[in-house]
Design a protein around this nucleic acid. Structure first.
Lengths: 335, 335
DNA sequence: CCTTCGTCGTGAATCGTTTCAAACTGTAGA
DNA sequence: TCTACAGTTTGAAACGATTCACGACGAAGG
């Protein structure tokens, strides 16, 4: 059914080897032979079979990327950065989203291994490093995204979330707040845990500052709204005077609950700061203060490390790149 | 280097055929043989080589999906729906985003053809149907997403954008507006053109209603903001009293320009309605009225059609599914 | 005229899985 | 004892591109 090199070769009266050379090393073939072969390809509508190429080559020209949540603009930006860097080397990104579900995460890893990807970029859900070690021991380079490995045994590209959390809460304190609530979860998510740790650190520096944790089950707008409603419905004296959300999606949800469904004022009654600085942050009901991360750059850099590591083979060194988060002040924390 | 069936077979003292049977039809193999083979697989850390499977099978177990913009939540929702349906049949979605760029669109189609995908879902950028015809003639089923083919020669899943545009503008008229502006572009985007056509139709029904078109070069928040600024900077008597944006991202941008960077009131001075009803619409500075589309369902249905068509072979019938858009009224058009 | 060298082109072997006709084993029935 | 037959297992062929050692040819140099 499908046209193969063999038929192209026959049509152009050359051998299959020559067709392959035209495709891959045209400079090694006499010009008019090249022309004849290209004509035959056009004529027959030949399309290379990538599976056959990969089989021969031993691995694919793709890189697997597993993110925690495709719906979070932060991760689509990371993916764009990765795609751009991969394209520079003629490679492709396979995007999988785990939805913070360990089974899905493992399923994607299995899939990528079967595809013999060049490597895997992953923002690992929990502590399933053994699975990643196994992948690597089979020759698949792994780079952690938005996360560092405890023992530096993996390459990684991350932003210092502890510093980010610290920056956020310090800012809230700077604008005069004292009863601070942290909204985020699940605590098993590293990003969440780190940001909380930073928040605790900043809070403990100043006497009189309290930090309360409102744990959520995920980091979506919906869960933010639920958390916001719970806070809104408290007696005024039990409400915090500032909220730090583990990401902007949560913050948007909290904002909805406080303002649109309630009658609290932001930042007057409660100041609010998010994390990630997604596009929508500045377009929210009240433009949202946030902690900015260089998402595109993270993706770009991660692929860069991966390709370098893949090139070096087994004895590659592992490099940890860490970017610093940046405070962006908008109206939700006053000016 | 990598472990193959051959080595597994040797380790389990069976033939390669038996290993393959254990993998694909375990019920045809004696229980203790199965156990022995599985033990060998575990022992050796065998991972199937997908390229070899595909080569043998003739095509991959993936479906290509080309969207206009991954950053638009509408499309990520479509992708999720597609992924969910594909997973039901053990298939995978390969996501490519064309960024409304014909070259990228073609590059992804080429890539998908080389990968011998099961089929392609695409929201085609322009009128490059010949390219799609060619793909189909090579045996790759194609389903149009969020778009219909003029001549019904392709299967498609779409929402009636003309009706959507009509609904939006009719609503603006219903709430008393007369000088309406349509913000969107490029006009070559079918979705944009259709929504505009609907808008024109609704406007022409009521005497005294004018419809002005403010063309943008894309459908991002940034371009919306630029358009909004242009409108804001006009003399008051030249400003429209209502704006219909081709999608919610644009509307969010317009909103930023009017309110946050200017001092116009929405909806008092200018009413505003968007399209897609993305999550952020209700969390915007002023909660945004919009036209809702069943994004997840569109993706799900598209894969469904595709698999049906792929199953039927060459003589498959082409089916056009059309969903109806739904008006969602929020504060940006008054209550 | 013979050798050497470079340019082009050849075709068989290879990658790893699946398939399928054929072979094998043991049991039940005649 | 022989045949039938179901249940298992076998192993070679096939998928299609790439590679590489080798052959063919012509030109240049001695």
């Amino acid at each position: 059914m499908a046209v193969s090199v063999r038929e192209v070769a026959a049509a152009a009266s050359v051998s299959v080897g020559t067709v392959s050379n035209v495709l891959n090393r045209p400079e090694k073939v006499a010009p008019d032979t090249v022309a004849r072969v290209l004509a035959a390809i056009e004529e027959l509508g030949f399309v290379r079979n990538d599976a056959a190429r990969q089989l021969r080559a031993g691995r694919s020209r793709s890189i697997g990327l597993v993110v925690l949540d495709v719906r979070n603009p932060f991760f689509t930006d990371v993916a764009r950065g990765a795609e751009d860097r991969a394209a520079e080397d003629g490679m492709t990104i396979l995007l999988g989203n785990s939805d913070d579900n360990p089974d899905r995460e493992r399923a994607y890893l299995d899939l990528f291994e079967e595809q013999r990807v060049h490597g895997v970029l992953i923002s690992p859900r929990g502590e399933d490093l053994p699975r990643l070690e196994r992948a690597r021991s089979r020759g698949v380079p792994v780079v952690l995204v938005d996360r560092e490995s405890e023992d530096r045994s993996f390459s990684s590209v991350a932003v210092d979330d502890v510093v980010g959390g610290e920056t956020a809460v310090r800012h809230l304190i700077d604008v005069g707040r004292r009863r601070i609530a942290f909204v985020g979860g699940p605590a098993s998510m590293r990003q969440v845990a780190d940001r909380l740790e930073g928040a605790r650190r900043a809070a403990s520096e100043v006497p009189g500052v309290t930090l309360e944790v409102v744990e959520t089950e995920g980091t979506t707008v919906l869960e933010g709204r639920a958390a916001g409603e719970a806070i809104r419905d408290r007696a005024p004296e039990h409400r915090p005077d500032a909220i730090f959300c583990a990401n902007d999606l949560l913050a948007v949800g909290v904002l909805q609950a406080l303002i649109m469904l309630g009658d609290l004022r932001v930042p007057d009654d409660i100041a609010l700061i998010g994390y990630d600085d997604i596009d929508f942050a500045q377009a929210a009901v009240v433009p949202l203060s946030s902690i900015r991360q260089p998402a595109w750059l993270i993706g770009y850099t991660a692929v860069d490390l991966l390709l370098r590591e893949a090139g070096d083979g087994a004895d590659a060194t592992h490099e940890q790149v860490q970017f610093q988060p940046e405070l962006v002040v908008r109206e939700s924390t006053g000016r």
